[in-house]
């Protein structure tokens, strides 16, 4: 692995290796605290994403490395019209590895093609966000002890939600994984995901509009937000929005060991009353995000 642009660039074995390194970091953080001494991570964020940037930066600091970069396009050379390739080539002279967030789809690939240091896609528009998917996989592994033999419910905006698409693609490679896709009819998964990933690989899945009906069989519930602007009319939005907000009563028939995930930020799709429920994993998920990024940085820098 040279760069990480798309989660599907990684084989199942490479993902399993990253997860096992991340779990070792969690067990033995001191062992890793000097691994990247003298190395620099450049966080090139052409649009603000505080959570993702802080996760990358703290990952690098905990490996003993340093961080340079910018957090929005306005404060960078991009504002003066410099190409992504030129910026990447310049930064290559200063840093050992790049994490790039960009509103345009494919920008991190352009950077990767232009430099010889590793490039990590930290989100390119609504296209890919592979470190979020790695975060989700590590969280599931930590919570369940496995990535196979699971029934995964994905709830909310399944049409535009890239985190859900990547999670489905990545989890489809594990044995005996079943999906329950819970969304309003307007926001069902795109056709190419249904045919090219689920049907083509014989992955069992059901599509439903009812979170309550789906709940009892779920091992994992991956929540995403249903956004007002995705609807053609306000009436449909108002009619549907509450069905996809997770509240304690909707959990009444859930498994005792259900794990609730959410890529965050949350607005109102998970009621704050759920936060104290031991099944709520979304803040643990944030922590997993830091550890898997540490494992990824080590891997891409070739540090053992």
């Amino acid at each position: 692995m040279k760069h990480l642009i798309d989660i599907l660039d990684l084989s199942k074995e490479e993902i399993d290796e990253l997860i096992s390194v991340a779990e070792d970091i969690i067990e033995n953080p001191a062992k890793y605290s000097e691994k990247c001494r003298g190395k620099k991570l450049a966080t090139l964020f052409y649009e603000p994403s505080t959570r993702t940037r802080l996760s990358f930066e703290s990952a690098m600091y905990e490996l003993g490395g340093n961080v340079i970069g910018f957090s929005e396009a306005g404060s960078s050379s991009a504002a003066k019209g410099e190409s992504v390739a030129d910026t990447a080539r310049t930064v290559e002279c200063f840093a050992d590895i790049i994490a790039m967030r960009h509103p345009k789809e494919g920008a991190p690939l352009v950077a990767a093609q232009s430099v010889s240091i590793p490039v990590i896609n930290a989100g390119d528009g609504s296209h890919n966000h592979p470190t979020q998917t790695l975060t989700d996989l590590l969280t599931i592994k930590r919570e369940k002890g496995r990535l196979d033999h699971l029934t995964i419910g994905c709830c909310g905006d399944l049409k535009f939600g890239r985190t859900v698409h990547s999670l489905i693609s990545a989890m489809s490679r594990y044995d005996n994984v079943e999906f329950v896709l819970i969304s309003p009819e307007e926001l069902m998964i795109p056709e190419h995901l249904r045919t090219d990933v689920l049907i083509k690989n014989n992955i069992p899945f059901t599509e439903t509009t009812s979170l309550e009906e789906a709940m009892p069989k779920l091992d994992i519930l991956y929540m995403t937000r249903v956004q007002r602007e995705r609807f053609f009319n306000e009436a449909d939005y108002v009619r549907l929005k509450d069905s996809y907000i997770l509240t304690p009563d909707k959990l009444s028939n859930a498994k005792k060991d259900l794990s609730i995930l959410h890529p965050l930020p949350r607005v109102n799709e998970i009621s704050v009353e759920i936060d104290s429920d031991p099944r709520a994993c979304y803040f643990k998920q944030v922590l997993c995000g830091k550890y898997i990024r540490m494992a990824l940085i080590l891997n891409l820098l070739g540090v053992n």
Binding site: S83, V84, H102, K104, E105, G106, A107, L109, V110, H127
Partner: peptide
Amino acid sequence: NPRCIVSTEQGLKHVFKLTD
């Protein structure tokens, strides 16, 4: 795709790959 980097990056060639 107007959101694609080829729409703004100078000198970047449009490249397509056979996926099916």
